[in-house]
């Protein structure tokens, strides 16, 4: 039950929740930049949370379906058209054999740069080392280890029974991950927080930083006031996580993201919380960001809250489906 890519847009990648368990081999996790949007999209369709979907960076994608299925677009507020007619985001839409789906631009003021197009059953590409995620630098996973290109024909896995009954289901705005945007990014002290002067730490948590043009799935380079080291910027390499904030010799932060290197030799002043790292992933060059210092417990609360939101969306979907079923 495949679809064909007419125009790939700037960067369209197959991603599931990532290739865990191989960082000790030097292989990074990859996975979505905004895992929360991907997971909600899958739950809306009745998929498994880990099913693979398309991570679409900026509008421009155009695909033609060669069989019917249901789709849901989550994440940034891209405008979606199916067969020339506007279709709502955060809503399960039905497409038919021959349907053309186009990501046309934004609906209103852009609120992010990455959206997830989830499809019933999830995208079927070979599982490589436990995951369908694309890691382009390693040329592995996803569709032939690369971003989608015009002419690619991509398959879907067998959807769950009753998948059609999700059609029309709508995720209420209060469950969408973008609802807190505009606030500061929560960060905990990093493993080398003691390598910075008190002034350096204050600068990091109090000043405004700007997202530069140097952003990709590996990391976000920020510009702003220089952060002062106590001694130097170099350490004997140690581990890096999604959200690690490295401060190299120039004193400007680099936040490491989904395709980060597994280890690195720069001091890490802080680690952006899992929740806030996904919010940062929606920022675009020129956007301003601030950081606020939280404890690990406070950072974890966002994750706990998301889990209960996700369950709530799943229950709503189940109720929606059973009502449609009885009609």
């Amino acid at each position: 039950m495949p679809f064909r890519v007419e125009k790939p847009g700037m960067l369209t990648l197959v991603q599931d929740l990532g290739r865990w368990g191989h960082q000790f081999r030097g292989l990074t996790v990859s996975g979505p930049m905004d895992q929360f949007s991907l997971r909600i999209g899958n739950v809306m369709l009745g998929n498994e949370e880990n099913d693979a979907a398309l991570e679409i960076t900026l509008p421009g994608l155009e695909i033609v379906f060669q069989s019917e299925c249901c789709v849901a677009l989550t994440g940034a507020n891209f405008r979606i058209e199916i067969d020339g007619v506007s279709a709502p985001a955060w809503t399960v839409c039905r497409v038919r054999n021959g349907s053309r789906l186009v990501i046309k631009g934004f609906s209103g003021t852009p609120d992010g740069c990455r959206a997830y197009l989830c499809m019933s059953g999830g995208i079927d590409v070979p599982v490589v080392m436990g995951s369908r995620s694309t890691f382009t630098r390693g040329r592995l996973g996803g569709y032939k280890g690369r971003a989608l290109a015009a002419g690619d024909v991509v398959g879907l896995c067998e959807p769950k029974p009753l998948w059609r009954l999700a059609e029309g289901f709508f995720c209420p705005p209060e469950f969408r991950p973008g609802r807190f945007d505009g606030g500061p990014l929560a960060a905990t002290d990093g493993p080398q927080a003691d390598a910075f002067t008190e002034k350096g730490i204050k600068t990091f948590y109090n000043e405004v930083y700007t997202v530069t043009n140097e952003i990709d799935r590996m990391g976000y380079r920020l510009d702003g006031p220089v952060i002062e080291h106590r001694t130097g910027a170099d350490i004997v390499s140690d581990g890096i996580v999604h959200g690690s904030v490295q401060i190299p010799g120039d004193g400007k932060p680099i936040v490491l993201m989904a395709d980060r290197q597994t280890t690195g030799g720069y001091t890490k002043i802080a680690v952006v919380s899992t929740w806030s790292a996904a919010r940062l992933a929606q920022k675009m060059p020129g956007d301003a960001v601030r950081f606020c210092r939280v404890t690990e417990k406070e950072a974890t609360k966002y994750l706990v809250d998301f889990e209960s939101d996700l369950r709530a969306v799943d229950e709503l979907r189940a109720t929606y489906r059973s009502r449609r079923h009885t009609l």
Binding site: W20, G21, H22, Q23, F24, P191, V236, S237, D238, G239, V241, T262, T263, E296, T300, L303, V304, E307
Partner: peptide
């Protein structure tokens, strides 16, 4: 998973 480096072990966990 846990990831060894020269001098440290990073233990990745699900905090929930």
């Amino acid at each position: 998973e846990s990831v060894p480096t020269y001098r440290s072990l990073s233990i990745h966990h699900d905090p929930i």
